[in-house]
Amino acid sequence: MELREIEILLDKYFDAETSVAEENQLKMYFSSSNVAPHLEQYRSMFGYFAQAGRQRFEKTIPLKTKKRYVGWLSVAASVVIAFGVFTFINKEPQEDLGTFDDPEIALRETQKALNLLSNNVNKGVNSINYLEEYENSRKTIFKK
């Protein structure tokens, strides 16, 4: 193609007036080996446009059919819940812990249990006495 024609096309190109066919003519010209020296700087641009159009998307597209799966999941969940409720309702009353026939023994055993409880409570209370000591010494110090 005539150099003059190319120059005219280039001017049109930069004004965005060229058609796709004319732009392809330009691309052809700049991919050839005899580009005029004063147009050399445009060669990389047109070469790049052509090369950029050859990039491919290589990954797969994840098209999951999710809906059916979710449906079955809810069925499974409701089965589990129904089973849980069923076993909860049908649970046997708690087994017998045993009782005393003789009221004397019952009283003794009760007292024993309560003693054990109060001993353990006192253990905690004892350590509070220490705090009182601190309070006393604080008072003696700060009064002076």
């Binding site: 060669r43 090369q51 990039q55």
Partner: peptide, 22 residues
């Protein structure tokens, strides 16, 4: 770059420039 392009290294360099500019 895409593999398999049998172009000159010089071309590739100038394409990279064009890409950066763009």
């Amino acid at each position: 770059r895409e593999p398999g392009l049998q172009q000159q290294a010089e071309d590739r360099d100038s394409w990279e420039w064009a890409e950066k500019l763009m």
